[in-house]
Design a protein around this nucleic acid. Structure first.
Lengths: 243, 243
DNA sequence: AGCTCCAGTAAACGTTTGTTTACTGTACAC
DNA sequence: GTGTACAGTAAACAAACGTTTACTGGAGCT
């Protein structure tokens, strides 16, 4: 299955110019396949509509060689998901280890994330497209990643004093809403041309604003929490007002 | 283009059993095509990946006959969007004309909408899938509908005293968030089996709760509005705290 | 009764699809 | 230097694709 590095000769490990070792070359065309798929996805196409043959054509190899790297298009789809989330994971880990709650925290977090999205448009476009449209196994993989993200965020949120009284369930909900807001911003960002900096700034500000509104609601939440939410009896007439 | 009804004989207008008039039959196979597409969409498939031929096969006609009804698959996609939103429009108009702000308003609105989604799964599944994945013209059609929906909701919201101080822009944002919440609930609902009533109830309650949290934030919004939102200078260091 | 219209059929077309087969050339281990 | 593993090639395959063409037959107007 896996090829062991086998004591690469030490001198030429970093020349990395035109040609390379055998596994290096293999990795290169593998990446070419992934890139070709992403590039085809940049347009109108959806992943499930693009064919193995055009991906290989985009990567500059023959169709049969595809099977040296992936068992089929679905396999390639999985690899794309992994690639897409890997860089995001790095970002999140840095954010978690690095800067602790600063001033401008909301603004900084939103900007950091959306910058990342803007820098990896193709990956996030793929995720956005496949989140609801792809095969169920791919959809579930994406959903799992988002769920993990929400869970991590909920843990982070639990450390804020203002949210101390949140139940675990409500923390999860709050984290879910925040993630949803950011995902919404992502989706709008993805079909805004990168050149339109004014529109991009508007998206940043809107996302940030939405985040602030939700957190504003969260600050009051626990006091209203016991109204009709927890264990509402089925078909009850719990009195609740809003508006 | 359009065929005029031409004074249908009055007696047999309602028999509607097996056979029908000529235009009636045409409408029937047209609907068969739309239904076939929706049914294929129920599974893993995405719209852009399904072929004209399998749609005609599902509808029980030959491929060539397809062109008597649509110019191509994209045309059929448009018809699907129209169908999907038509019933929603009816629902929204009823809701608007009918019940005025009641108690349980949030709960009732959420339940009404999600009931509608549950009753038209196929249509909303199609919309959810194509919202980001389809051709740009179809995507834009969906986005336009959502934008109109948000606009209508913003108008409705403007009539609430508690939101009187919202700027037009902020009202739009609030409406957008509320619509996003409902759409989020819709998307979760769509891949929950209809039989799992417990999970469905959980979705209803979660959506409702999110809505309440946002409106809670909105109740305080105007007082905090002047903090760092309106006309923040580029690359400023406006002080804002949250959490 | 006769004429017209048109939804649907049947067949053919040139492409493109996914996958398999036998092969070639070269980087690497020995 | 020799042998082998294996990434990539070339060719073939049946199947499915979108679209066009000529046709058929029944409903609907006169």
């Amino acid at each position: 299955m896996k090829r062991r590095p086998h004591s690469r000769r030490q001198g030429e490990a970093e020349n990395a110019g035109r040609e390379g070792g055998r596994d290096e070359r293999k990795l290169r065309t593998r990446r070419a396949l992934l890139d070709a798929a992403l590039q085809l996805l940049e347009g109108e196409r959806s992943f499930s509509s693009l064919s193995l043959r055009e991906v290989t054509k985009g990567a500059g190899i023959t169709p049969a060689a595809f099977y040296r790297h992936f068992s089929g298009m679905e396999d390639l789809g999985h690899a794309l998901i992994e690639d897409s989330f890997r860089s995001l994971h790095v970002l999140m880990r840095q954010a978690r280890e690095g800067a602790l709650p600063s001033t401008h925290m909301i603004r900084a977090s939103v900007a950091t994330f959306l910058d990342h999205v803007a820098a990896h448009r193709a990956h996030f476009r793929f995720i956005a497209k496949e989140r609801f449209s792809g095969s169920s196994v791919i959809r579930m993989a994406i959903r799992k990643e988002i769920r993990l993200w929400i869970g991590d965020l909920a843990v982070d949120l639990s450390r804020f004093p203002a949210l101390a009284k949140f139940s675990a369930e409500d923390l999860q909900m709050l984290a879910g809403m925040m993630v949803n807001i950011v995902i919404g911003g992502t989706e709008v960002l993805l079909d805004t041309p990168p050149a339109d900096t004014e529109a991009l700034q508007r998206i940043y500000r809107l996302t940030e604003k939405q985040m602030r509104l939700v957190l504003l609601g969260a600050a009051l939440w626990d006091s209203n929490n016991a109204r009709a939410d927890e264990r509402s009896p089925p078909s009850s007439t719990a009195r609740s007002r809003a508006g």
